[in-house]
Protein backbone atom coordinates (compact mmCIF):
# COMPACT_ATOMS: atom_id res chain seq x y z
CA UNK A 1 0.00 0.00 0.00
CA UNK A 2 1.59 3.20 -1.12
CA UNK A 3 -0.48 5.57 0.98
CA UNK A 4 1.63 6.72 3.92
CA UNK A 5 0.50 5.91 7.48
CA UNK A 6 -0.85 8.97 9.35
CA UNK A 7 1.51 8.30 12.23
CA UNK A 8 3.78 5.47 13.21
CA UNK A 9 3.98 3.98 16.72
CA UNK A 10 7.77 4.05 16.66
CA UNK A 11 10.10 6.11 14.53
CA UNK A 12 13.11 3.86 14.15
CA UNK A 13 16.14 5.45 12.56
CA UNK A 14 19.78 6.38 12.80
CA UNK A 15 21.83 9.20 14.20
CA UNK A 16 25.02 9.78 12.24
CA UNK A 17 27.70 11.76 14.02
CA UNK A 18 29.71 13.67 11.43
CA UNK A 19 32.11 14.83 14.14
CA UNK A 20 33.16 11.26 14.82
CA UNK A 21 33.00 9.52 11.43
CA UNK A 22 36.50 8.76 10.18
CA UNK A 23 35.41 7.67 6.71
CA UNK A 24 36.67 4.08 7.01
CA UNK A 25 33.76 2.63 4.98
CA UNK A 26 33.36 -0.26 7.45
CA UNK A 27 29.61 0.45 7.68
CA UNK A 28 29.38 0.36 3.88
CA UNK A 29 31.11 -3.00 3.70
CA UNK A 30 29.24 -4.59 6.58
CA UNK A 31 25.94 -3.31 5.17
CA UNK A 32 26.68 -5.04 1.88
CA UNK A 33 27.91 -8.15 3.68
CA UNK A 34 24.75 -8.53 5.77
CA UNK A 35 22.23 -7.47 3.15
CA UNK A 36 23.59 -9.59 0.33
CA UNK A 37 22.56 -12.65 2.30
CA UNK A 38 19.60 -11.32 4.25
CA UNK A 39 16.36 -9.58 3.26
CA UNK A 40 15.41 -10.09 -0.41
CA UNK A 41 17.62 -10.70 -3.41
CA UNK A 42 21.43 -10.56 -3.10
CA UNK A 43 23.06 -7.18 -3.62
CA UNK A 44 24.85 -7.81 -6.86
CA UNK A 45 27.97 -6.36 -8.42
CA UNK A 46 28.78 -6.03 -12.10
CA UNK A 47 32.38 -6.56 -13.18
CA UNK A 48 33.61 -6.46 -9.57
CA UNK A 49 37.17 -7.28 -10.61
CA UNK A 50 36.97 -5.77 -14.12
CA UNK A 51 37.79 -2.41 -15.63
CA UNK A 52 34.49 -0.79 -14.76
CA UNK A 53 33.17 -2.17 -11.49
CA UNK A 54 29.73 -1.13 -10.24
CA UNK A 55 27.00 -2.56 -8.09
CA UNK A 56 24.14 -1.92 -5.71
CA UNK A 57 24.94 -0.49 -2.27
CA UNK A 58 22.53 0.64 0.41
CA UNK A 59 24.97 2.93 2.14
CA UNK A 60 27.67 5.10 0.61
CA UNK A 61 30.17 7.52 2.13
CA UNK A 62 30.90 10.78 0.38
CA UNK A 63 33.69 13.03 1.58
CA UNK A 64 33.21 16.79 1.54
CA UNK A 65 35.54 19.72 2.04
CA UNK A 66 34.12 22.69 3.96
CA UNK A 67 35.77 26.06 3.77
CA UNK A 68 34.53 28.37 6.57
CA UNK A 69 34.98 32.12 6.15
CA UNK A 70 37.29 32.53 9.17
CA UNK A 71 38.93 29.15 9.66
CA UNK A 72 40.94 26.69 7.59
CA UNK A 73 39.20 24.11 5.40
CA UNK A 74 38.11 20.86 6.96
CA UNK A 75 37.20 17.40 5.69
CA UNK A 76 33.91 15.77 6.66
CA UNK A 77 33.11 12.15 5.88
CA UNK A 78 29.45 11.81 5.11
CA UNK A 79 27.67 8.43 5.24
CA UNK A 80 24.40 8.42 3.33
CA UNK A 81 21.64 5.82 3.36
CA UNK A 82 17.83 5.81 3.47
CA UNK A 83 16.49 8.37 5.98
CA UNK A 84 13.14 6.52 6.41
CA UNK A 85 11.26 9.80 5.85
CA UNK A 86 7.89 10.41 7.47
CA UNK A 87 6.61 11.91 4.20
CA UNK A 88 8.48 9.51 1.97
CA UNK A 89 7.93 10.58 -1.66
CA UNK A 90 9.39 7.26 -2.87
CA UNK A 91 6.45 5.39 -1.36
CA UNK A 92 3.56 7.39 -2.79
CA UNK A 93 4.86 7.31 -6.39
CA UNK A 94 5.12 3.49 -6.43
CA UNK A 95 2.51 2.15 -8.88
CA UNK A 96 2.43 -1.42 -7.58
CA UNK A 97 2.39 -1.16 -3.80
CA UNK A 98 5.86 -2.72 -3.58
CA UNK A 99 7.11 0.29 -1.61
CA UNK A 100 5.56 0.88 1.76
CA UNK A 101 6.14 2.52 5.14
CA UNK A 102 5.37 0.35 8.15
CA UNK A 103 2.87 1.87 10.58
CA UNK A 104 4.39 0.04 13.56
CA UNK A 105 7.96 1.35 13.34
CA UNK A 106 8.15 3.66 10.33
CA UNK A 107 10.65 1.56 8.37
CA UNK A 108 10.38 2.08 4.60
CA UNK A 109 10.66 -1.22 2.75
CA UNK A 110 10.33 -2.70 -0.74
CA UNK A 111 8.43 -5.93 -1.27
CA UNK A 112 10.66 -7.17 -4.05
CA UNK A 113 8.19 -9.70 -5.50
CA UNK A 114 5.88 -6.80 -6.36
CA UNK A 115 8.55 -4.44 -7.72
CA UNK A 116 8.37 -3.93 -11.51
CA UNK A 117 11.69 -2.10 -11.59
CA UNK A 118 10.30 1.13 -13.05
CA UNK A 119 12.75 3.25 -11.06
CA UNK A 120 10.27 6.05 -10.31
CA UNK A 121 10.85 5.77 -6.53
CA UNK A 122 14.57 6.39 -7.04
CA UNK A 123 13.66 9.50 -9.07
CA UNK A 124 11.37 10.72 -6.29
CA UNK A 125 14.04 10.41 -3.57
CA UNK A 126 16.20 13.56 -3.23
CA UNK A 127 18.91 11.67 -1.31
CA UNK A 128 19.82 8.91 -3.75
CA UNK A 129 18.90 6.31 -1.15
CA UNK A 130 17.47 3.78 -3.58
CA UNK A 131 19.42 1.81 -6.14
CA UNK A 132 18.23 -0.65 -8.76
CA UNK A 133 19.92 -4.02 -8.44
CA UNK A 134 21.76 -4.55 -11.73
CA UNK A 135 21.12 -8.29 -11.82
CA UNK A 136 17.76 -8.77 -10.10
CA UNK A 137 16.26 -5.58 -11.61
CA UNK A 138 14.36 -4.73 -8.46
CA UNK A 139 14.76 -1.66 -6.26
CA UNK A 140 17.06 -2.06 -3.27
CA UNK A 141 17.22 0.16 -0.22
CA UNK A 142 18.24 0.24 3.43
CA UNK A 143 15.88 -1.95 5.49
CA UNK A 144 17.32 -0.66 8.77
CA UNK A 145 18.37 -4.33 8.99
CA UNK A 146 14.80 -5.32 9.75
CA UNK A 147 16.06 -8.91 9.79
CA UNK A 148 18.55 -8.13 12.58
CA UNK A 149 16.72 -5.72 14.86
CA UNK A 150 13.82 -8.12 15.51
CA UNK A 151 15.88 -11.30 15.18
CA UNK A 152 15.48 -13.52 18.24
CA UNK A 153 18.29 -15.78 17.04
CA UNK A 154 20.79 -13.01 17.67
CA UNK A 155 22.03 -11.92 21.08
CA UNK A 156 20.20 -8.82 22.22
CA UNK A 157 23.34 -6.73 21.91
CA UNK A 158 23.52 -7.66 18.20
CA UNK A 159 19.93 -6.63 17.42
CA UNK A 160 21.00 -3.40 15.81
CA UNK A 161 21.65 -2.51 12.14
CA UNK A 162 24.87 -3.93 10.66
CA UNK A 163 26.29 -0.47 9.99
CA UNK A 164 25.79 0.60 13.61
CA UNK A 165 27.15 -2.64 15.00
CA UNK A 166 30.33 -2.43 12.97
CA UNK A 167 31.24 1.26 13.26
CA UNK A 168 34.64 1.32 15.02
CA UNK A 169 34.32 5.01 15.87
CA UNK A 170 30.79 4.80 17.32
CA UNK A 171 29.61 7.39 14.80
CA UNK A 172 26.31 5.61 14.16
CA UNK A 173 23.47 5.13 16.62
CA UNK A 174 20.17 3.32 16.24
CA UNK A 175 16.97 4.00 18.18
CA UNK A 176 13.40 5.23 18.39
CA UNK A 177 12.91 8.93 17.70
CA UNK A 178 9.28 8.76 18.85
CA UNK A 179 10.58 8.23 22.39
CA UNK A 180 11.91 11.56 23.72
CA UNK A 181 14.03 9.72 26.31
CA UNK A 182 15.80 7.44 23.85
CA UNK A 183 19.54 7.91 23.38
CA UNK A 184 19.05 9.03 19.78
CA UNK A 185 16.47 11.66 20.76
CA UNK A 186 18.68 13.05 23.51
CA UNK A 187 21.76 13.10 21.27
CA UNK A 188 19.82 14.90 18.57
CA UNK A 189 18.57 17.49 21.05
CA UNK A 190 21.91 18.11 22.75
CA UNK A 191 24.09 18.20 19.66
CA UNK A 192 21.70 20.04 17.31
CA UNK A 193 20.95 17.07 15.07
CA UNK A 194 19.50 18.19 11.75
CA UNK A 195 17.60 17.00 8.64
CA UNK A 196 19.10 16.76 5.16
CA UNK A 197 17.39 19.01 2.59
CA UNK A 198 14.46 19.95 4.86
CA UNK A 199 13.16 22.11 1.99
CA UNK A 200 12.14 18.93 0.14
CA UNK A 201 9.44 18.41 2.82
CA UNK A 202 10.27 14.73 3.25
CA UNK A 203 10.59 14.90 7.08
CA UNK A 204 13.53 12.50 7.38
CA UNK A 205 13.67 10.37 10.55
CA UNK A 206 17.46 9.93 10.45
CA UNK A 207 19.39 12.85 11.93
CA UNK A 208 22.92 14.09 11.36
CA UNK A 209 25.05 15.58 14.15
CA UNK A 210 27.22 18.45 12.90
CA UNK A 211 31.00 18.41 13.24
CA UNK A 212 32.07 20.30 16.40
CA UNK A 213 33.64 23.70 15.68
CA UNK A 214 37.36 23.46 15.06
CA UNK A 215 39.81 25.82 16.77
CA UNK A 216 41.38 28.48 14.60
CA UNK A 217 45.19 27.86 14.51
CA UNK A 218 45.88 31.60 14.88
CA UNK A 219 44.08 31.70 18.25
CA UNK A 220 45.19 28.19 19.06
CA UNK A 221 48.89 29.24 18.78
CA UNK A 222 48.51 32.05 21.35
CA UNK A 223 46.64 29.64 23.63
CA UNK A 224 49.50 27.14 23.48
CA UNK A 225 51.77 29.60 25.32
CA UNK A 226 49.67 29.18 28.42
CA UNK A 227 49.55 25.43 28.06
CA UNK A 228 50.93 23.34 30.91
CA UNK A 229 51.87 26.21 33.30
CA UNK A 230 53.26 23.65 35.77
CA UNK A 231 56.01 22.97 33.27
CA UNK A 232 56.86 26.62 32.47
CA UNK A 233 60.60 26.80 31.70
CA UNK A 234 62.65 27.55 34.79
CA UNK A 235 66.25 26.45 34.79
CA UNK A 236 68.29 27.16 37.93
CA UNK A 237 70.13 23.99 38.73
CA UNK A 238 72.63 21.64 37.12
CA UNK A 239 73.77 21.43 33.54
CA UNK A 240 70.58 22.88 32.06
CA UNK A 241 70.81 25.83 34.45
CA UNK A 242 74.41 26.48 33.41
CA UNK A 243 73.49 26.29 29.68
CA UNK A 244 70.54 28.61 30.33
CA UNK A 245 72.70 31.20 32.08
CA UNK A 246 75.44 30.89 29.44
CA UNK A 247 72.98 31.45 26.61
CA UNK A 248 71.40 34.42 28.45
CA UNK A 249 74.81 36.08 28.61
CA UNK A 250 75.16 35.83 24.83
CA UNK A 251 72.31 38.37 24.69
Amino acid sequence: MTLLPETTQKKLGLVIDLDVCVGCHACVVNCKEWNTGGYGAPLSDVEPYGDNPSGAWLNRIHTFEITPADAPAQIVHFPKSCLHCEDAPCVTVCPTGASYKRSEDGIVLVEEDKCIGCGLCAWACPYGAREMDPVENVMKKCTLCVDRIYNDNLLEIDRTPACVKTCPANARHFGDFADPNSAVSIMTLERGGYDLMPEMDTKPVNKYLPPRPKANPATAASESKQLAPAFAPKAGEGLLGWIDRALEKLG
Binding site: H62, I66, T67, A69, Q74, Y194, Y208
Partner: peptide, 15 residues
Protein backbone atom coordinates in the same frame (compact mmCIF):
# COMPACT_ATOMS: atom_id res chain seq x y z
CA UNK B 1 21.51 22.06 2.34
CA UNK B 2 21.94 18.54 0.94
CA UNK B 3 24.66 17.81 3.48
CA UNK B 4 23.53 20.35 6.09
CA UNK B 5 27.15 21.51 6.23
CA UNK B 6 26.47 24.80 4.46
CA UNK B 7 26.03 26.49 7.87
CA UNK B 8 29.75 25.99 8.54
CA UNK B 9 31.14 27.15 5.22
CA UNK B 10 31.36 26.53 1.54
CA UNK B 11 30.87 22.82 0.80
CA UNK B 12 32.34 20.90 -2.11
CA UNK B 13 32.79 17.23 -2.89
CA UNK B 14 36.28 16.04 -2.00
CA UNK B 15 35.90 12.35 -2.79
Amino acid sequence: TATGLGKIGKVKLFE
